[in-house]
Design a protein around this nucleic acid. Structure first.
Lengths: 222, 222
DNA sequence: TCAACGCTATTGTTGAACAATCGATACGCA
DNA sequence: TGCGTATCGATTGTTCAACAATAGCGTTGA
């Protein structure tokens, strides 16, 4: 008997709600630290409290919201330590995945598609979508390692990082420069120089960390 | 009133149930592939269906059970590919954590404690407890890397791996040899030869993978 | 001022109810 | 007999209403 992937088209209501709130979160519809009231949210989404609470449980497991017993769930407020930790994990995971990748791995096509998508969205100046495409690019890098569990874990920490992006005002500066950087990594890798591609990737991640941390410091002082 | 830390132990009923089922799962109280009926389980645990379903959601997220819409939740049946993937991740994560570890990291004490615990339990021929101590040892190795998110992820894949252990009859052969191996890794590391410790660890993980895979093949043919 | 008290809004948990779906059984037809 | 199909029962999906438990807040009283 073959087990179907999670591709399976059966979006139960609970999963739909979870995905909906997740999108609201990473798109910055809520402010970090904000409390999410069960009553107001389940009215707004048109679902029952039980269903909403199931969604909260999942999101709390993913780290996007924080559950405090008898107080409620709050949008996770990323701290500087979390940002540093996540970037450390990203360098660890992404660089390893890229350095050991099979050059004609199917995920390379996903990387290319993400670069194209990012370029298109940048022309529309839709920075939200550029950010999504950027996430897809780095997710594809991790997919090179062919580990379903690692893919899930990585998507999770990227979503958490994106909460921090929500704190930043200038989305163009946040996402814009990485369109070229990603493409450069991809072309270096496709050109066969894996070592150089990894070095570029590591350098870009370090730069991104500096930018995000600086922005975090700015808003923390408000 | 002073604000408590998030350490605060407030095990809600749902979390208690989740932990209880998790323990039953890793201790092999259920057989892989078995369906967990909501009605019978919530009677057995004395909780309502809603609470039980919250627990199921969490466990499904951890990979210990598999949710099939409108059919129920089933104890995840590990396949050979999962075992291979998990060991690949273990080598990746544990070896890196150990190789970059600070020699006097607090987690080293945890490693030592786990080794002692394993030895004690082996004398009692309590192989279940030896397995738990073994998991604690490897969890401590990962803790050397000081990444809370990685710690959670690693505990999760170890729990999933332990489902596969449940398929094996001879627990002594499964856990017994690793008491010495773990101690050897620890002492080599404490002796200052990190490179050699990592090499030992990698070798032991490879051996463990062979044993578990062989056992899996045997039971798969039944 | 401040401590103790009780109030209120919210979360935690339950049980029942109904809808939706899966799997199996029984039926009809060639 | 063999096979497709209608039907049925059991289980899951979801909602609702109710009550318990708790945190935060305001009031009272010295």
């Amino acid at each position: 008997m073959k087990k179907q992937d999670l591709e399976d088209r059966n979006p139960s209501l609970g999963e739909t709600v979870t995905a909906g709130i997740r999108r609201l979160l990473v798109e910055g519809a809520f402010t970090p630290g904000q409390r999410l009231s069960e009553i107001s949210l389940c009215e707004r989404l048109g679902v029952s409290r039980n269903t909403l609470r199931e969604a909260f449980r999942t999101l709390a497991h993913e780290g996007l919201v924080t559950h405090q017993p008898h107080r409620g769930v709050f949008v996770t407020r990323p701290d500087a330590a979390s940002i540093v930790e996540i970037y450390r994990l990203r360098r660890f995971i992404e660089c390893r995945a890229l350095s050991e990748a099979w050059p004609s791995h199917p995920a390379v096509k996903e990387m290319r598609a993400a670069v194209e998508e990012a370029r298109t969205c940048r022309e529309r100046r839709d920075w939200q979508a550029v950010g999504t495409a950027n996430m897809a690019f780095h997710g594809a890098i991790v997919a090179l390692a062919d580990s379903a569990r690692m893919n899930v874990f990585f998507r999770q920490i990227l979503a958490e990082l994106r909460l921090a992006f929500g704190l930043m005002a200038d989305k163009e500066w946040l996402h814009g420069p990485y369109v070229e950087m990603n493409e450069q990594v991809l072309e270096t890798f496709e050109g066969g120089d894996t070592t150089a591609a990894v070095a570029l990737l590591e350098q870009y991640l370090a730069q991104s960390e500096r930018i995000v941390l600086a922005a975090w410091e700015r808003q923390a002082s408000l």
